[in-house]
């Protein structure tokens, strides 16, 4: 169900836990589906011994995908027109991520209503992992 412009207010927020104790298996699952098999995400031996990281960590694009779930749950299926993020901090196995969308504008363009959202996804320590924006079509 798409959003109704008449019922939206600037500053209104939508929030959702999009990963609860993120598993290495989910990272592997994302590698398989996306096709990005970089061993820094899937191979702990490589990540620690060769790349010098504390361990494997999530693809930035997995974090964007997880955040996309909040966005599409908020705006409805097939209504998204723009979605963009900045990658701010890495996401590690065990992280719990909470995504929040805040209505920044409700506007009309060519007779159609759009909602603009500011996005932020934080980890269990309260640190931003990504920030971004999204826009979607909505009903009158």
């Amino acid at each position: 169900m798409s959003l109704s412009a008449a019922k939206l207010e600037v500053g209104q927020t939508f929030t959702q836990v999009v990963a609860d104790d993120l598993t290495r298996t989910q990272i592997v699952q994302y590698a398989g589906a996306s096709g990005d098999y970089n061993p820094i995400h899937t191979d702990n031996l490589f990540a620690t011994e060769v790349a010098g990281y504390p361990g494997v960590f999530a693809h930035g694009m997995l974090t964007m995908g997880l955040t996309g779930k909040l966005v599409t749950d908020t705006v409805g299926d097939g209504t998204l027109t723009d979605f963009g993020v900045r990658f701010v901090n890495q996401v590690w196995p065990g992280d719990t991520l909470t995504a929040t969308a805040t209505v920044s504008a409700i506007r009309q363009e060519d007779g159609q209503h759009f909602v603009d959202l500011d996005l932020v996804t934080v980890n269990q320590h309260g640190a931003n992992v990504i920030t971004g924006t999204a826009s979607a079509l909505c009903q009158d």
């Binding site: 010098g52 990281y53 930035g60 979605f83 963009g84 993020v85 900045r86």
Partner: peptide, 18 residues
């Protein structure tokens, strides 16, 4: 063995228009 954030390329942003 190098620092994780080596002097290589980092993915800083990703945007989509549908």
């Amino acid at each position: 063995k190098s620092s994780g954030a080596a002097a290589g390329g980092l993915h800083a942003e990703q945007h989509y228009t549908y």
